[in-house]
Design a protein around this nucleic acid. Structure first.
Lengths: 119, 119
DNA sequence: CAAACATATGAACAAATGCTCATATGTTAA
DNA sequence: TTAACATATGAGCATTTGTTCATATGTTTG
């Protein structure tokens, strides 16, 4: 292994320092995984649409389905993912289940994303 | 179609209003797609690791590979995705290509993600 | 120029993802 | 309790995604 490093980059001393510095502040495995999982949830246009819908109003599954012109089942599956990521919460109202945004990080994250896209 | 709506929710009038209100502020197809694509880029722990590395220093492909203990090819493929999303930029320095963060949205988005995870 | 190094890229393959369909669970009203 | 409505969920399937392997491109040095 130590011999292997020498074979790599010419200016290996500088590089080793950089690698060490960069490694130092790297979050642990679990946090990296959780972060990636969180952003993965934002990374689907159906879920994005659902979140935008919830920006405007608390709304039931059936209405989300109608708004997005998709099946109830597809929406329900996606809501499960949003729930697991704690991006949305829900309350029962009679036969309906009303979903709503869990907290303001959702808006902030999406707003930053939009800003980035506008260059 | 019009008949179909009546078959759906009992309190359809309220629902129709909600659907209309919610639809009104929905970003267009393209923006939703772009947003989802952007967050998809954050949704992989290898790319997340690369971004954290770039938080600390501008660094070449070979050093990223060594830091993450992955092959040069895998890193290069991921850097291409980060480049396309304009999250990173690069400059040539001799034989090496040095990558660096494109702008501060990257930090803000990731910071918000971390905050969300800490509940 | 040729050799060595650093990076990029295309094809292939396994794993993950999103939707559909059928059906289960839960709630209300007759 | 039964029927009707609203939502949830498991299995199956097609598509997407991340890595590896082999190789191409680009840069410097002898």
């Amino acid at each position: 292994m130590a011999e292997n490093e020498i074979e790599k980059c010419e200016v290996e001393e500088i590089h080793v320092d950089k690698v060490r510095a960069v490694t130092k502040n790297m979050p642990d495995e679990d946090e990296l995984y959780d972060l990636a999982e969180l952003f993965k949830v934002f990374g689907d246009s159906t879920r994005m649409r659902i979140l935008f819908a919830l920006f405007e109003a608390d709304i039931c599954v059936c209405d989300i389905a109608e708004t997005l012109n998709m099946t109830q089942s597809a929406i329900s599956h996606q809501l499960k993912i949003l729930k697991q990521a704690k991006l949305v919460n829900f309350r029962r109202e009679g036969k309906s289940v009303i979903y709503f945004l869990a907290d303001d990080h959702v808006r902030t994250i999406i707003d930053q994303g939009r800003e980035h896209i506008e260059e």
